[in-house]
Each structure stands twice: as structure tokens, then as C-alpha cells.
């Protein structure tokens, strides 16, 4: 997935296309990095699992899909884009 964003280790995100800036929490930063590398849903979930202590109640798949909607709302990714796998 094309995601032309400057992402700093602290979670500061800069969209060079629009000039918008954002604060991302650690999970969001990780997902943005994964998306920049073109990862699909399964890989993104695995990425979160590798970095975080995940509880039983957490539904990572749902969280990733919701996060994609947030990115679409912020027009960081095109509205029609879906994650693979």
C-alpha cells in the first residue's frame, strides 16, 4: 500500500502531501510502518502480536480494519483501498 508519510520514532506523523501532522500511539505507528512495507491484514496482526503483550479480549483484526477506516477518513489512503490477506 502506498503510504507517503514521515513517521518519527516518537509517533509524530507528517503528511508531506497535505502538511497535516498527527500523533500516533505505538500501535498506530507500528501499523503505519507495516503498511508502508505493503503488509496485508495477517502480517499487520502478526506485527502487533510480535511487539505487544496482547490480552484475550483484544481483537487485533478488528482493530486493524478500524484503523484503516481512520486512515481513509483522514484521506491518508484512498477510500476504496482494502487490505490484502
Amino acid at each position: 500500500m502506498e503510504l507517503d508519510l514521515a513517521i518519527s520514532p516518537s509517533g509524530f506523523v507528517f503528511d508531506p502531501r497535505t502538511g497535516a501532522t498527527f500523533s500516533a500511539n505505538p500501535a498506530a505507528r507500528l501499523l503505519l510502518e507495516g503498511m508502508q512495507e505493503g503488509e496485508g491484514l495477517a502480517a499487520l496482526v502478526a506485527r502487533l502480536q510480535a511487539h505487544f503483550e496482547v490480552g484475550e479480549a483484544d481483537d487485533l483484526e478488528r482493530d486493524v480494519l478500524e484503523f484503516l477506516r481512520v486512515l481513509q477518513d483522514e484521506t491518508l489512503v484512498p477510500a476504496e483501498r482494502e487490505l490484502e490477506g
Binding site: 500523533s23 500501535a27 498506530a28 503483550e53 496482547v54 481512520v70 486512515l71
Partner: peptide
Amino acid sequence: SEKPRYERPSLQRHR
């Protein structure tokens, strides 16, 4: 080292 506890992803636009 302990992995940090997962928190759902959050992205906040600066306004």
C-alpha cells in the same frame, strides 16, 4: 524484556 501491554491503535490529527 517484557513486551509493552497492547493499546488499540490511535491516530490524532493536530488541530
